[in-house]
Nucleic acid binder design. Structure first.
Lengths: 229, 229
DNA sequence: CTTTTCTCGATATAAAGTTCTCGATATTGT
DNA sequence: ACAATATCGAGAACTTTATATCGAGAAAAG
């Protein structure tokens, strides 16, 4: 992790592990909602998700919600609080660059829209792909990226191009005024530090998995369930 | 103190952050190798990857490699050590379940084989998909999964089915003797605790991204680059 | 051959995250 | 109505991870 900014004026620094757990809670709560449950306790959540109840409570605390002793949290309030906190209520518009197999897969994830992400269009440098639509989203020429991003005030860019092209695409995105990049290419992007970069490197995950598996097989009894490696 | 215990399978608890950074080093080192560099120092790596040199050194230490003062590490040795440590040299065979768009994308990631993962086949419950091949990998009926996994001693299962079907598939995998599950479905799987489960929940990542973006836009100056959220 | 300089390795310090402990409070049962 | 109990909330204690500091040794320079 790069050095955090010195001026610790940070009003609220939410621990990243917490941030990663909140959607898990959300998903579980949604299933409870489907069963018409009205309230839920940290203990229940902890038991179901195999997490410490105290930790659940601390995580939920960051969303600002308050529970009632002996009862727990009102389910609908809690779900709403998480969604609000994670910004899933204000839809963010995004462009996706790289209409390969991974790009196509993401374009098909319709549920992203439930979570505040609306992918407007895909971009690709391949002439043969331009003009088609994938899962209902148009594929546009890469040349129009920066201009369109700027004109439409798109704030999120999703990079699903090969590693070699990722840096170039990132620069185009920044030029177009993009504020956050979700990077699926296995490279470290060098961009203005005000731009949020989120790396979704599957090879990293694979590394963790391989390593753990190797450890278990060599006798290191440590087969524990891990989160989002 | 423990010098380099080769034998005695140490309960070596490798920090997960370290595990996630190793592939990043690996990738960078590979590019250096392409330029015929012979050795590299932690300082160089740190500068390039915007990480603290001390941290780089600690991370590399876990692989068991030793460097030489004033010189650094021999590039080829270092790359080899990382690959060995991460288990990329002993190929793991895997089955993928769920031949949807995400499954197809993963089947197309040919580079997985460089990293020790060999996806042998895909499985799907959809009769229309069974019998076809995707990126050269056959799609087999779900009913054959457990049996084949057992007979072929496949140790890794990759789940890319919808959330509702994930638990059922996981149980099939465990029944087939699978040792590790790479789960792309947004659910928590309940399996024997000796089975390694790695959740690759894109919604979690999206959550972190949304939250950070919301924070920046609301003035919470915290626009820092984050790792693999 | 000696000095300088750079980089590893180890130890120490700090920060972050997790778990534990305790007290307060509202619901339930007697 | 009152006691029992389950659950939240806050803070302390502990563990884990990250950063800083210092000494040793090898290469390069003089």
């Amino acid at each position: 992790m790069p050095p955090v900014d010195l001026h610790h004026s940070a009003p609220k620094s939410v621990p990243e592990p917490t941030l990663r757990r909140l959607p898990i809670y959300h998903h579980y709560l949604k299933t409870l909602e489907a069963f018409d449950k009205y309230s839920v306790s940290c203990t229940d959540i902890g038991n179901e998700l195999k997490l410490d109840p105290t930790q659940v409570r601390k995580d939920l605390e960051t969303t600002g919600i308050v529970g009632k002793p002996r009862v727990g949290y009102v389910l609908s309030d809690l779900i709403g609080a998480i969604e609000e906190f994670l910004g899933w209520n204000n839809l963010n518009e995004a462009f996706l660059i790289g209409a390969g197999s991974m790009g196509a897969a993401l374009l098909g994830y319709r549920k992203f829209e439930d979570y505040g992400l609306n992918i407007l269009a895909a971009f690709d440098s391949d002439e043969k792909k331009v003009g088609r639509t994938i899962h209902g989203k148009p594929v546009l020429p890469l040349g129009k990226l920066a201009n369109l991003a700027q004109r439409m005030h798109v704030r999120i860019g999703i990079i699903t191009v090969p590693a070699a092209a990722a840096q170039e695409v990132a620069e185009l995105l920044v030029a177009g005024g993009i504020r956050a990049i979700w990077n699926f290419a296995p490279v470290r992007l060098r961009v203005d530090e005000r731009v949020i970069v989120h790396n979704e490197d599957l090879y990293c995950s694979l590394a963790a998995l391989s390593r753990q598996l190797a450890g278990v097989i060599h006798g290191t009894a440590k087969g524990r369930s891990t989160e989002h490696g």
